[in-house]
Amino acid sequence: MSNWKKLLIEPLRKTNPVMVLVLGICSCLAVTAKLKPALVMGASVTVVTAFSNLIISLLRKGIPSRIRIIVQLVVVSTLVILVDQFLKAFAYDVSKQLSVYVGLIITNCIIMGRLEAYALSHGPGESFLDGLGNGLGYSLILIIVAFFRELFGSGTLLGYQVIPQSLYEAGYQNNGLMILPPMALIVIGIIIWINNSKTESK
């Protein structure tokens, strides 16, 4: 039981795929201007990572190692197609916002990294949890970055205004820089900095 917990909790902070292993940065940055697409993206990646880990782990004894990359890509892209069609059917506006980044989940290094490093050598149950944990670790960073960018960039959270109108009347202005893509990099840089200095002091 404690092993299960460890698989789920460790990727949130100690082996976080974004902060510590620096994987899956590409999509992490582009979808974080607003909180809502970030939530959807995090959920999609978590689903794909968990299930691709499960499937590859079930198939791991039958895949010849020379062609494993192709097999992995096919499994992952099938799952991504499912997610994409699902989003188009039930959350069309978000799927439009995410545009190509849903498709880019296929080449998200977190997924390939977990498949190579974990699913190929562990049982299905453990692999599923490992995928889930890493997906959640990724979502966590996505949500933190999106939270700050939306709060300071647009003064809203999930589309609702958070910063009171009276503050705007007193001369407060949204920081337009936060919506621009480069700020995502700087926010992540600062998160990594905080995380690193916390880990060191322990």
């Binding site: 990099l185 700087i186 840089g189 600062i190 990594i192």
Partner: peptide, 14 residues
């Protein structure tokens, strides 16, 4: 110290 390596690369890229 905490910024060495990856952290500073992110900020420079930004």
């Amino acid at each position: 110290k905490g910024l060495e390596g990856v952290g500073i690369s992110f900020i420079i890229t930004g």
